[in-house]
Amino acid sequence: MTGFAAEIGPPILLTLELAAVTTLLLLLMGTPLAWWLARSRAPWKEAVAAVVALPLVLPPTVLGFYLLVLLGPDGPGGWIAGLWGARTLAFTFGGLVIGSVLYSMPFVVQPIRNAFEAFGERPLEAAATLRASPLDAFFSVALPLARPGLLTGAVLGFAHTVGEFGVVLMIGGNLPGSTKVLSVAIFDYVETMQWGRAHAVAAGMAAFSFAVILLMTLLERRSRAARA
């Protein structure tokens, strides 16, 4: 068991690091995007929303394949990596972050957009009558009111990144210490017929998924109680 703990430790830490970095980036990028989707009257905003939601229905291997092309040595990722002397962003932690951000984006943007749309115009109009600038109203009124959506998006984004497999396998492979996350570790154990270790990791991830669902239910119930 000690050997197994030492072996599974790096994938656990790498998975948590990937999920944390991805969630932070998604909140920073997804919140203004969700605000624009909630407030804009542009006729093409739903086309943008559809692009954001595409990973919900697109097979992970399809997204992973195109990311592999874009991040590889012959794509834009190769040119960017060349700035510090590397050949590619594929099969690197940076490549995993890019893929995870794109793949988990709808799980963060949609709850935040729903939260922005839920409180309507009146709080912002009240802030405007108090001479609050649009930026001030966003930070002092919109964000506090949308806090349940932000929490939901953060939890979903983190959990979805922890559990993703197809995209990270396509663009990251199975490099210990660099790209071997928990979902890939399970695949590796099954391939090598190490059923006990596969069961242990899978059971841990199933328990984590249950905890996420329970947390989401409690957050939703608390949000409803606060609005009542």
Rank of each mutant, 00 (worst) to 15 (best):
T2G: 11
A6F: 15
E7H: 14
E7R: 11
I8Y: 00
P10W: 13
P11Y: 07
I12Y: 12
L14Y: 03
L18D: 00
A19P: 00
A19I: 06
A19Q: 00
L25C: 12
L27E: 06
G30Q: 02
T31Q: 03
T31W: 08
W35L: 04
W36S: 01
W36K: 02
A38R: 09
A38G: 14
V48C: 10
V52Q: 06
L58C: 10
T61Y: 15
T61I: 15
L63C: 08
Y66M: 14
L68R: 01
L68W: 01
V69I: 15
G72F: 03
D74F: 13
G75H: 07
P76H: 05
G77M: 09
A81G: 12
W84R: 13
W84V: 14
R87Y: 07
T92P: 02
F93H: 10
L96A: 02
V97D: 07
I98K: 02
V101G: 06
P106Y: 08
F107S: 06
V109N: 01
P111N: 12
A118F: 13
E125G: 03
E125H: 14
A127Y: 06
T129W: 08
R131K: 11
R131D: 15
R131Q: 12
S133A: 14
S133D: 12
L135W: 14
A137Y: 13
F139S: 11
F139W: 14
A142Y: 07
G149T: 04
V155R: 10
L156K: 09
G157Q: 00
G157D: 03
H160I: 09
T161L: 03
V162L: 05
V162P: 08
E164D: 10
V167E: 09
V168D: 02
M170A: 14
G173E: 02
L175F: 08
P176C: 00
T179H: 08
L182D: 02
L182E: 00
S183R: 06
A185I: 09
F187V: 00
F187W: 09
V190N: 06
R197C: 08
A198H: 06
A200F: 05
A200V: 02
A202V: 05
M205F: 09
A207G: 05
S209C: 07
F210M: 07
M216L: 14
M216T: 11
M216W: 07
S223M: 03
R224E: 12
